[in-house]
């Protein structure tokens, strides 16, 4: 082989980059997120758990558009229970802990939703009320 001194190191660098995830993780898959179930013990949600798991972001986006842009604040009814459309009014009334519920999966999958640019978490609200 010609130019071994250049080609072999080049190949080594390429293989290291191409297999980056293999050695970065160090054969340890790390912890799997376990989102906290509602502390109040609610068993029912606006949709089944699998649907919520994969589609909650689309639903929240639709709610946001309906409420803020079209003014449709009609409540969502699921299994006879009424939910007011909204992150704080619907979701956070049962899933009260953002850090233990939302963040557990979002941190795992590197998702940074911009909900919290405007919304307050229950912990935020408590902290605000305590301030004089």
């Amino acid at each position: 082989m010609y130019n071994k001194g250049l080609i072999v190191p080049g190949l080594v660098v390429f293989v290291i980059i191409a297999t980056f995830p293999f050695w970065y993780n160090g054969l340890s898959a790390g912890p799997v997120p376990k989102p906290e179930l509602p502390p109040g013990g609610e068993k029912q949600c606006v949709a089944p758990a699998e649907v919520m798991r994969s589609e909650h972001m689309s639903m929240l986006n639709e709610w946001r558009d309906e409420v803020l842009r079209d003014g449709h604040r009609v409540a969502v009814v699921a299994d006879g229970k009424e939910y007011r459309k909204g992150l704080q009014t619907a979701c956070m009334s049962c899933h009260t802990n953002k850090e233990k519920f939302c963040d557990s999966c979002h941190n795992y999958t590197a998702v940074q939703p911009y909900c919290w640019d405007c919304h307050l978490t229950p912990a935020n609200i408590v902290a605000k009320k305590e301030k004089p």
Partner: peptide, 21 residues
């Protein structure tokens, strides 16, 4: 087509592939 696209399960599979488990 978000139906049954559970990103946590997908990441578990992807990380599993990268750690040979």
């Amino acid at each position: 087509l978000r139906g049954n696209v559970d990103v946590v399960a997908i990441k578990q599979l992807a990380v599993g592939l990268a750690t040979f488990q």
